[in-house]
Design a protein around this nucleic acid. Structure first.
Lengths: 194, 194, 194, 194
DNA sequence: AATGAATGAGCTTTCATTCAT
DNA sequence: TATGAATGAAAGCTCATTCAT
């Protein structure tokens, strides 16, 4: 991915994101992307090596933004519970604005190790570590489930995805907090974190 | 889908399931499926109208089996908590034996309303109703989160998927119970259901 | 190159030979070849991996035929001079019937070592060894230039090519014998071989 | 072809010559030529109308140089045999220094009659007449094969090309003289021209 | 009913050419 | 005048689908 004009690169990425979110990979033609982005087809290939590369760059781009937005919420001092709540709210807000990323993030790459595939793997790992660290902090305040922080992280991400993915927008304003309660206390109670 | 020789139909479905679980839709060729199933390519078209139809039949088939296996656990008398635990254990066991369905189930059809699309929609709805009913039963024993049984159902399914999807097999034997605890009590405690 | 129906494979090869002889590689489209051969474009790719492969197969095919036709003339007992004369006559006759191979044979492959490239190299080497052996036999009857049989072989092939390539057909009937005289005695005389 | 800066025009021609000698026409991209020449792609089009034009100019340029260098050797008084020997030596030396022209000269244009195509045809004809005249002079000293000077010219050029084209450099110092002997006396003897 | 060679629409990709800077 | 990003027509190639055997 050698971007010459960042603005144009973004143009392409946005167009592709919308199309790939609405249709499956094989249903989206490079012609469509070019038309949608308002550039010629050849231009796509100046910015991305091929269709696969474009798709991966798209996913990486989205995860990077999500990572960046989440990062500030989880690192640094503060009550672990508040951090988790903020983290969830943040993700919900992110997906509210970028609904198509919910679709994109699902795909796991199995293909060869091109530069883009590696980048995708890297950001995925980074992102998952972030969530794991966030969840780990709960252990210090007596949450025994956090003994398996990786499972807890997967559970948290699973809940969020499950809710957002299959609840039609617009989402009720209390959804993020409902998720928080469910994740922290299960089905039992809606009690605050203490 | 007009199956003439059920055995042969199953052969094709199994072959397709494995391939579609390992690669994305557009990466799997009808040639591959035919080879893998040990039949000629033309035969595929005697059993399924086209590639999309085969794919949908596959998903429907998998969800139907999952539904059938889960059904007995959730209907009828019994402690709701036990039912939930059994339900989770059952799903974990199912995916242990059919790991590729975890991949398949993700896809949501957006294409036109063929017979197969409708069948998929029907079984999906049926399945989701099953989980929702199961979760609803928790309300009767004082689980306030069950006031929104649909959200709770999505959360449960999300946790299960999150854990199974990203934890490499073989899965530890206590994973199902960990999921149960997380779903019922959140991060707080590992206490049994009382 | 996996040929299923030899007849159809020949059909394609003939069509391609004519087109490649009339136009350069990059000027001939796969569509043209398909049209000319009376098959669909996809069929070309059942018989040959890609355009390059088709082109190479074509050249190999032609050289193989030339080699086969020349082989009988050069091996076995007999007067070396007669053999050379027959050899030249044979080549002239061959090119009279397959004029486009004169164009094709020029190209030397520099590309990667696919199966076809190797095959081309093999037949080229075989063919050149044949000519070299033929020429070597002249040494036994006191032709000192045959001390460098490889150079002499190149000279012979060069003369033949030079004459045929740039003399418009139909060729005078004595052209083969003129070549023989030139090769054997140079500019000096037209005397027969004794 | 309107050359503005001759130095730059030569730069382009040299770069193109090397690339076209190493790869076939359709394998060489205008990008490659521009990179190799150290100019921008657009600049190529200020000096040549299109790719074909550049290619033809290249060939014409090479043949013109060969013609110029050969011209002095063949015209004017002197022993015809010596002239032929010098002519051969000269060509060998020329190709030693410009090895890629051996590859270029092979191509015959079949495309439309642009100015460049005509120029190529003109120089080719001129060059061939030169060789024919040279060979014709041999008749005066009793070389009967020179009764067909055009054939003899083609034979001479064919021998030279055959040897040089398929003998890897560096070439033995006696190669030019071996060619001379072969052309003048055939396989018979290595005797000098008397 | 099963086969698999043939099909050709439609896709991805290339690259000679243009033109705003 | 030189540049090189943008262009888009044209090419190579794929593969779901068909149908004669």
């Amino acid at each position: 991915m050698r971007t010459y004009d960042p603005k144009r690169g973004q143009q392409i990425l946005d167009a592709a994101a919308q199309l790939f979110a609405m249709h499956h990979y094989h249903e989206v033609r490079m012609d469509d992307i070019a038309d949608h982005a308002g550039v010629a087809k050849g231009t796509l290939y100046r910015y991305y090596n091929d269709k696969e590369d474009l798709y991966l760059a798209l996913t990486v781009h989205g995860m990077q933004r999500l990572f960046d937005e989440s990062h500030g919420k989880t690192i640094g001092p503060g009550d672990p519970c508040d951090k988790v709540r903020d983290f969830i709210r943040n993700i919900v807000k992110f997906y509210e604005q970028q609904p198509y990323f919910l679709e994109l993030i699902q795909r796991i790459e199995t293909s060869g190790s091109t530069a883009s595939t590696n980048a995708l793997h890297a950001i995925r790992t980074q992102w998952f570590q972030l969530v794991t660290e966030l969840v780990s902090q709960l252990e210090s305040i007596g949450k025994p489930m956090a003994e398996r922080p990786q499972w807890a992280a997967l559970a948290l991400v699973g809940i969020i995805r499950g809710l957002l993915r299959f609840t039609p927008q617009p989402w009720p304003s209390d959804m993020a907090d409902w998720i928080y309660d469910q994740f922290m206390h299960g089905m039992t109670t809606r009690a605050a974190c203490v």
